[in-house]
């Protein structure tokens, strides 16, 4: 069966994105505002926020961009007076194969994490919707606890779990008869380290996505599912034909938030592996940090972070463009 698109449009929590763009909302806004002249109030109210963001975010970003066009090393940091070098830093980066490896690795890291996060959190959300009251509260509590756990604390516990000599993971594996894990150094192996960090990041991100999706699920009218079931839909078909289309924009929003979160993920990687071994877990943010802090090449690091922002923007533009097209199609 197919859901009439009007039904979907009316029942979705589209206010998240559609908001003022729907004709109804626009009308309402206009009647509330004083007619005929532009009020200065909105601007005045928003001014402190804009100024604060400009000061704490805008200024460093501008400094960073400027630095990426300068020669800026330890000497310039201490003595000042950096010279402009045009695009030299960018040229140096683009000519470096290490940089391209890092870019590809970052994209792969983001893809793997986001796919896992979306799949797992969808499953958890669907499960939550079906659980009885007690179990649901138990699962939600578990999710909230994970979400509330400070990143560094969680990461430290993770390190202890996988510690080569005293870690409980190796102990369990050895107890299970896998003797090759006696004193196994997880962090000496590139793929193992990569996988370990992926699992950590996914574990930390699933709660937010799952809880948000679950909240979305509760807004889908039960009649829709009933009608679909009468028409013979079940399981996967129900999800594909009803749940997903109805919550499409919510899925899109969470996916983009997770892309941002994973792409700029730094603390977990740095605390666990510092980008090692042999750069196996060096993503763009880690690379920028290494270039700045170990090589003292603040100029190159500035260029790397500018590129990071550009790549992220491109990724998100693809998403926004697509969802915009869906809006107009509707």
């Amino acid at each position: 069966m197919t859901v009439p698109s009007e039904v979907a449009a009316r029942t979705t929590p589209h206010t998240v994105k559609r908001g003022a763009s729907s004709p109804r909302d626009r009308h309402r806004t206009r009647t509330n505002a004083p007619r005929g002249r532009t009020s200065f109030w909105p601007y005045l109210l928003v001014a402190p926020t804009v100024l604060l963001i400009g000061a704490v975010l805008g200024y460093p970003v501008v400094r960073n961009v400027v630095m990426s066009f300068q020669e800026f090393g330890l000497r310039e940091l201490v003595q000042g007076a950096p010279a402009f070098v045009g695009l030299a830093n960018y040229r140096e980066l683009f000519a470096d194969h290490v940089f391209w490896e890092v870019v590809v690795r970052t994209l792969a890291f983001t893809a793997v994490n986001v796919v896992l996060i979306m799949v797992l959190s969808t499953l958890v959300a669907l499960m939550l919707a079906r659980l009885g009251r007690v179990l649901r509260v138990a699962v939600m509590t578990g999710l909230v606890v994970v979400w509330a756990m400070p990143v560094i604390a969680a990461t430290t516990v993770w390190q202890w779990l996988f510690q080569s000599r005293f870690g409980v993971v190796n102990w369990v594996l050895v107890q299970l008869g896998l003797d090759q894990f006696q004193d196994y150094s997880w962090l000496a192996n590139g793929s193992a380290t990569f996988a370990l960090i992926v699992v950590l990041v996914v574990w930390q991100s699933v709660p937010f996505a799952a809880l948000t999706l679950y909240a979305g699920l509760t807004t889908v009218p039960a009649e829709l599912f009933e009608a679909a079931r009468i028409d013979g839909a079940a399981g996967w078909a129900l999800f594909r034909r009803i749940t997903f289309p109805v919550l499409r924009s919510l899925f899109g929003l969470i996916a983009s938030l997770e892309v941002i979160w994973v792409f700029k993920c730094f603390v977990q990687i740095w605390a666990i592996s510092e980008g090692g071994p042999n750069d196996a877990t060096t993503t763009l943010p880690v690379y920028a940090y290494q270039v700045a802090q170990t090589l003292n090449r603040y100029d190159l690091a500035g260029a790397v972070s500018v590129i990071t922002v550009v790549v992220l923007t491109i990724l998100l533009l693809v998403y926004f463009r697509q969802s915009l097209r869906q809006e107009t199609n509707r």
């Binding site: 460093p60 400094r63 920028a288």
Partner: peptide, 16 residues
């Protein structure tokens, strides 16, 4: 002090 996000790495100068 520098356990900041990597985006801030290039900003070390201003924070210093």
């Amino acid at each position: 002090r520098f356990a900041a996000s990597a985006l801030a790495a290039g900003l070390a100068a201003s924070l210093a």
